[in-house]
Amino acid sequence: MSKRKRRIADAVIFAVLLLGGLTMLVPFLWMISTSFKEPGSLFDLPIQLWPEKLHWENYQRVLTAVPFARWYFNSLVLALGLTFLNLTSGALAGYAFARFSWKGKDVMFLFSLITLMIPAHVLIIPLFIIMSRLGWIDTYYALVLPGLFDAFAIFLMRQNFISLPRELEEAALIDGATPWQIYWKIALPLAAPALATLGTFTFLGGWNAFLWPLIATNSIEMRPLTVGLAVFNTQFTTEWTVLMAGLSLATIPPIIVFLAAQKYFIRGLTLGSLKG
């Protein structure tokens, strides 16, 4: 009886979860279906969930009328570059905050947290001015280098290293290993799950970035996809079907990254949980 009750409860839970999950699918499918609608269709309501006829010309248009491949490449450079810098510097600093102590450490940590709390909108113009003094506007430097410091990365990695067992590191210390060796050979490999988690978040962030790349690039060739595709959003009209074709193609890398990281993902965040 109780077992049967349990099974019914499970089935209900499963159905509710599936239903909730399916609602998440709708906008995604709508984006893809719009990309197959007749060019010039109004992105209008009431919505039509699936086109009567598949219109591949939207894809043809987005692939040929604009430097789509170049934009894609730029987006990859931007997202991967940010991710690389973020992981490197975030893990290093996170380890330092977890395992070292020095005078002023708390103040430094506080300062880094503060950067999370000031809306980026007011920092963008000052950053543009600094970058243009450095002569880096319209280069990959301007797009990627701001990722050198990221408080979220440091925070996440700090929590991760704190929660790692210390025994291994202590043994290595007694064996005469330097902190650098311990970090590189012991701590970092253990942090792989956290790195995968952080990497996915950073990649997504870089891939979706709009305002900063818009400001930081001048030429059409240096734009990432997000900014480039805005060309279909003109003064008079928006070419929704073509825009959605571009955006649909743009979801491929994040999905690949997400799937690749998924097995680390779940374990990674655990270790990131706050143990202060």
């Binding site: 543009f128 003094r133 818009l214 030429s219 900014v227 959003n233």
Partner: peptide
């Protein structure tokens, strides 16, 4: 020619003025 997307045109233009460029 320097193209700037229509919706964000003034954001970019003002930033360039602010930087003296």
């Amino acid at each position: 020619f320097m193209h700037i997307p229509a919706k964000d045109y003034w954001t970019k233009i003002t930033a360039m003025f602010a930087a003296g460029k």
